[in-house]
């Protein structure tokens, strides 16, 4: 149902749009503009003056081995988080889609982690996997596995991946469950009569019919892993040990806020911004069209 509303004057529509425009201007365009400006400037060590250096900051950032390390970390981290969060959510959704006793409770419990703040989630995982006081951390060590994510970079990466994915499973679960429920039962029954066993039904009918949902969630999860996992990493590992869990977004923080390298940090921000824009463009362009059967 579409209704066309026509306002008399010119003022009212602008007034109605003003709050949204103000928010976008203040919290996005202004900082983004600042970042772009900063990315081509270099400050003196005391922050008293700055000079224009062109693309020098970008050249420096892109040739910095530490930056390339962060790129690699981000790639590993975000693919793992997306794969883990999508896989687990799909598995749980398939189970929840069956008619089982207490389905309502089960679904509610699965959705809860989404309501937990990133830092709180991180502390929860910290307490579980702390090598000295954590329940699982101690158990692992007792079982003879040398578990200490504060010393072992791979273990630290594993932990932030799990903690970040855990938070995203709920969100994916809701979408997958809705997707599964929108698949007509008779189509699955037709496949069963055509001779397909459950596993085959899943891979040849259910999974392809979920592809629009999966693609949408993939983009959302990558965006999440790229940009919204700062809190988890900060509370769990602080990017360490060494630089083992330093992702792009975390490095922006470290370089800009801790090391006060404003030019370099801004250049990284601009690169990240380009990635967001690209991801969003992909989402808008393809989610609506290509994946639809």
């Amino acid at each position: 149902m579409r209704r066309r509303v026509i306002f008399r004057g010119k003022l009212l529509p602008y007034l109605l749009l003003a709050p949204q425009i103000a928010v976008t201007l203040v919290f996005f365009f202004w900082p983004a503009g600042q970042a772009i400006r900063q990315s081509v400037l270099r400050e003196d060590p005391f922050g008293l003056s700055s000079e224009f250096v062109g693309l020098e900051n970008f050249r420096e950032v892109l040739s910095d081995p530490l930056y390339l390390n962060a790129v690699w970390n981000t790639a590993v981290f975000s693919t793992s988080v997306a794969a883990l969060a999508l896989g687990a959510a799909l598995f749980l959704a398939v189970l929840a889609d069956k008619s089982i006793r207490g389905a309502g409770v089960y679904k509610t419990l699965l959705i809860w982690p989404y309501a937990v703040a990133p830092a709180v989630a991180a502390v929860l995982w910290l307490f579980l996997f702390h090598p000295a006081i954590g329940l699982f951390g101690r158990a692992l060590n007792a079982a003879g596995i040398a578990w200490d994510f504060k010393l072992n970079g791979a273990q630290a990466m594993l932990l932030v991946i799990f903690a970040s994915a855990w938070k995203q499973v709920s969100y994916n679960f809701i979408f997958f469950l809705a997707g599964l429920q929108s698949i007509p039962r008779s189509v699955l029954e037709a496949a069963a009569i055509d001779g397909a066993r459950p596993a085959r039904r899943f891979w040849t009918v259910v999974f392809p019919l979920l592809s629009p949902t999966t693609f949408f969630l993939l983009v959302v999860n990558l965006t999440y892993a790229f940009f919204d996992t700062f809190g988890v990493i900060h509370a769990l590992t602080g990017g360490g040990p060494g630089k083992a869990t330093e992702t792009l977004i975390y490095k922006v923080y470290v370089d800009g806020v801790q090391n006060l390298n404003l030019g370099g940090s801004s250049a990284q921000s601009v690169i990240l911004m380009a990635i967001v824009i690209a991801l969003t463009a992909v989402q808008f362009r393809y989610v609506e069209r290509r994946v639809h059967y």
């Binding site: 007509p184 029954e189 019919l209 059967y293």
Partner: peptide, 13 residues
């Protein structure tokens, strides 16, 4: 056996 459904139940993809 084979079955023809009321809503046809064709595989949309």
């Amino acid at each position: 056996i084979a079955m023809v459904f009321q809503n046809y139940a064709l595989y949309p993809h």
